[in-house]
Amino acid sequence: MGTTRTTDSTATTEKRTDDETVPAQAVATEKETDAAAVPEDAEDIEGADQGQELDQDAPAPPGTAGVAAGAGAVVAAGLGLASVTGTWLGTLMAERQTLMGQINLQAGKATDQISAMYGTPWHTTALVNGVFAVLAALVAAVVLTRPRATWVRAVAWGGLALGVLGLLISAGMYLDLFGSMPTIPKGTRPGA
């Protein structure tokens, strides 16, 4: 009943069983199947190990955690940039300090006009920019605490760098390292 037909080495071997034609590979013996399966399993295991190693560097699957990390990195970079370039809030606070200095001068309460009109607003701007710099560094550090996608880490590192730079600039402004407080020359003081 069973007829086996074999052609050249590249052709398929067929086995005829009760009027059905079945490829020889499908009716291979159990011994051949086991021998063929072992190398494939070994390759699968090696591939899985390599895949796991690659997955560590692969981006996280999309989800709320990935979106939050990306948003945090962008916020950190934005805060860092704001700390370096200045903010509307810093300008507003400096103008408020200038106005308060003018009011104190008119009321006769300010003893140092230059400090009231120049120094205090300058230091207020430095403090506000310093707060933005610290926030940028903190947000970037939080984002960098876990493995993230490459672009998220890059943006977070940029935010951290800008935050540190903003903090250094703010400290220099507050401590008058970039320029000393203006003074009135001794020969032009009233009453001298």
Rank of each mutant, 00 (worst) to 15 (best):
Y174V: 01
A133P: 08
T29W: 02
V22I: 14
P182N: 06
G179N: 07
T12N: 11
A68V: 05
G101F: 10
V74S: 08
D57T: 05
G51H: 00
G72Y: 03
T12D: 11
L79Q: 06
E95A: 10
T7F: 15
T120R: 11
T183I: 07
I45F: 09
A26K: 14
D34N: 13
G108E: 06
G166I: 01
T85W: 12
A137T: 14
T10I: 05
D18Q: 10
V139N: 04
T17N: 04
D19Y: 10
R189D: 03
G78Q: 02
I169K: 10
E46L: 12
R5M: 13
Q56G: 06
T17C: 04
A35M: 14
S180A: 12
D55S: 11
P147K: 10
E43M: 09
T4V: 14
L138W: 04
A149Y: 06
A154F: 10
Q102E: 15
M173D: 11
L162H: 02
A116V: 02
R148H: 14
M93H: 05
E95V: 08
T98Q: 11
T183A: 10
L99C: 00
A140S: 03
H123A: 14
G159F: 09
V84Q: 03
D8Y: 07
A107E: 15
A116Y: 02
T10H: 11
M181L: 15
L177S: 12
A76D: 00
L92H: 09
F178C: 00
V38L: 13
V74Y: 10
T13K: 08
Q97C: 06
V128D: 00
T4R: 12
L92S: 12
D8R: 09
P182D: 03
A149G: 07
V38H: 11
W122Q: 06
G163K: 00
A171G: 12
D41I: 11
A140F: 06
I45V: 14
D49P: 00
P39T: 06
T29P: 11
A37M: 05
W151E: 10
A140M: 00
G101L: 04
A192W: 09
T3W: 15
D18T: 08
K186W: 04
V75T: 13
T98N: 09
P182R: 01
E40H: 13
E53K: 15
E95D: 11
T4E: 13
A137N: 03
I103K: 08
S170M: 08
V27R: 11
G159K: 05
G72I: 05
A82T: 04
K31I: 08
G187K: 13
H123C: 05
A136N: 05
Q97E: 15
P62L: 02
L175V: 03
A11W: 06
L127P: 07
A28G: 09
A149R: 02
Q106D: 15
Q106V: 08
